[in-house]
Design a protein around this nucleic acid. Structure first.
Length: 561
RNA sequence: GCGCCUAUAGCUCAACCGGAUAGAGCAACGGCCUUCUAAGCCGUAGGUUGCAGGUUCGAGUCCUGCUGGGCGUACCA
């Protein structure tokens, strides 16, 4: 429908150019949007206002000329000029109902598009270091990143999901020492407990597993606990594998999968770090000072230069970060999106600066970042800060166990990433109209409930009949649902383009609301065969769109609740 | 101090890369279950979009300044 109107306006534009009303070099992007207010018709365009200056005419006068030049179309029943110069299009009932036919024929593919065809995109998300269970913040990253991946896949991109973790640095040494202390029966309150050691109970479990000689599998490798309290290397390797395995279980419970787990240590073992250093030095952006090797990131917009190699000879985290992203670039990703917590935002300028200094023709704004703000968890109106197991934070697993996967995913993905999120456990658990997840799922279940009733009464859905009778869907409520369904493909491609998963959630709430209104106003199971089947078709199409939308969020669409 | 993010109804949040009268839910009040699931619907009330300027036909949206909040500002990650 929208495409039809754009097409019609394009033709009108051409004929006005031909007769000299509009300069022939004017080539505005024709914008047609669904209206918010139905007295404004179904679609509106601001074209006359956009062109008024170029044409040297008042918008309303130009609008009249546009309408006069508009080819006739069966899809449009009326066009009006309104307000400062909007063109309001009223869609013909049959044209509106075409959307039902389209949803039926496209099924699961409805809403998908091809605009990203051929684009190789990588999304790096979660990237938690293996020093503990995943917490709520990681959960937000997992939800946002996962939905982004689904959106990009749905819009035709070739998506790689990647998880990067540090398996070697100082934090891992700390982990190994903490585990070792536990194997010796020490606790955080003992005098010889390592400074800044990890204090959570999970370290005890890990130590016990190591001492029991358990075998854990992570990233395709099996590691068996050596049960030797003095072998720090064995403890380190086991601890990393054990916690990576734990995180895998967290992710699995959340329904998130990755294609690639990238180890920071591989950057060293494969010489990528050295190669990066050499390149930066050769390019002349480095200098030695105070025993350390610095990179002149200020040449690329950073506010101070950064240390690459410390006085003690070790590298700062910054350098492997640059090496890692260089590796991403070399793997051919034209787009890379890094989803991470906003508390790491200071790395953005730095990594981009480092990449520019490589002189490898990497675009200035590459890679892209989606940063999510802090999550606080509330229960009974009070902030929840502690998990018994992890000590200082709320784990993702706790949350999933308590409120369920669907609600957890929905709540973490339904807000803009760049605003702080309050996760209200009571709300997420409530099985009531307070809870948007159930509100949407309920709309889906209701359709299937009607369908079951139709089957029970020997009035099963007849698709052929229904498709021939769609013009019977004439009520305001039915039209509202159809107009809303027609927006879905735009919502998906826009959400993918601007990297905003919450737009899908918002849309589903709107569609569900339209459906519930319709459900209460228009009875489906009427005697008249044609009407009943047309309405069943509308319900089924709605359910399909809800299912497609929920699939993008990774949330289930139950047929019964 | 500097950098990034943010400020919308009492509360939690939307608003389709500038569009018409800024929308939902919760909380408040009033209605709707002998009819397809009331996890629902309908209605009432609630706003100077933090403040002040600017850009333009038009600004919650873009720009500048100010104020409040979050995060960051390591030879930690």
């Amino acid at each position: 429908m929208k495409e039809t109107i754009i097409e019609l306006l394009g033709q009108a534009l051409d004929s006005l150019k031909a007769d000299g009303t509009i300069p022939s070099d004017a080539s505005p992007q024709i914008k047609v949007d669904p209206t918010k207010d139905k007295t404004h018709g179904d679609y509106a365009s601001n074209l006359a206002m956009m062109l008024s200056k170029a044409a040297g005419m008042k918008p309303r006068d130009l609008a009249e000329k546009l309408i006069a030049a508009l080819p006739a179309s069966e899809a449009v029943s009326k066009v009006e000029i309104a307000g400062p110069g909007f063109l309001n299009f009223f869609a013909d009932t049959g044209a509106v109902a075409d959307i039902v036919r389209r949803v039926f024929s496209e099924g699961e593919q409805f809403g998908h598009s091809e605009f990203g065809r051929g684009e190789k995109v990588q999304v790096e998300f979660v990237s938690a270091n293996p020093t503990g269970p995943l917490h709520v913040g990681h959960g937000r990253g997992a939800a946002v990143g996962d939905v982004l991946c689904r959106l990009l896949s749905a819009t035709g991109h070739d998506v790689t999901r990647e998880f990067y973790y540090n398996d070697a640095g100082a934090q891992i040494d700390n982990l190994a020492l903490s585990t070792q202390a536990r194997t010796k029966g020490l606790g955080p309150d003992d005098a010889s407990w390592p400074e800044n050691g990890y204090r959570g109970d999970y370290i005890s479990e890990l130590a016990a597993s190591y001492m029991a000689g358990d075998t854990v599998e992570a990233d395709g490798k099996q590691v068996t606990g050596a049960a030797d309290t003095d072998d720090l290397d064995a403890i380190r390797v086991f601890a990393v594998a054990y916690l990576r395995h734990e995180q895998d279980l967290d992710l699995k419970a959340f329904g998130v999968e990755f294609d690639v787990y990238f180890l920071e240590s591989s950057l060293y073992s494969e010489g990528k770090v050295e190669e990066t250093v050499k390149r930066l030095v050769d390019n002349g952006y480095t200098y030695e000072d105070d025993g350390a090797l610095w990179l002149r990131t200020t040449d690329f917009g950073d506010d101070k230069d950064r240390v690459m190699r410390k006085r003690d000879g070790g590298y700062t985290y910054f350098l492997p970060d640059v090496a890692y992203h260089f590796d991403k670039w070399q793997r051919g990703f034209t787009q890379v999106i890094n989803e991470q917590g906003a508390d790491h935002h200071s790395t953005v300028t730095r990594v981009r600066a480092g990449l520019q200094a490589l002189k490898a023709d990497i675009p200035k704004g590459w890679p892209d970042y989606v940063l999510h703000q802090m999550v606080t968890v509330m229960r009974s109106g009070k902030e929840v800060k502690l998990s018994k197991r992890a000590g200082s934070y709320v784990t993702l697993r706790d949350l999933i166990e308590e409120v369920g996967r669907d609600a957890t995913r929905y709540f973490l993905a339904a807000r803009r990433a760049d605003s702080q999120l309050t996760f209200d456990i009571d709300l997420a658990r409530s099985q009531s109209n307070d809870n948007p997840v159930y509100y949407i799922q309920y709309a889906h279940a209701r359709v299937h409930s009607v369908l079951r009733k139709a089957d029970r009464e020997d009035k099963s859905f007849d698709e052929t009949l229904a498709m021939a009778q769609l013009t019977l869907l004439t009520s305001d409520q039915e039209k509202a649902v159809m107009n809303r369904m027609a927006q879905f493909p735009d919502v998906v491609s826009h959400a993918a383009r601007v990297r905003e998963p919450q737009q899908v959630a918002q849309y589903l709430q709107d569609l569900s609301s339209d459906f519930h209104t319709c459900y209460n106003a228009v009875k489906v199971m009427v005697e008249d065969n044609a009407t009943r089947n047309a309405r069943l078709a509308l319900g089924l199409a709605t359910a399909q769109v809800i299912r497609n939308g929920l699939a993008l969020l990774g949330v289930s669409a139950p047929e019964e609740m």
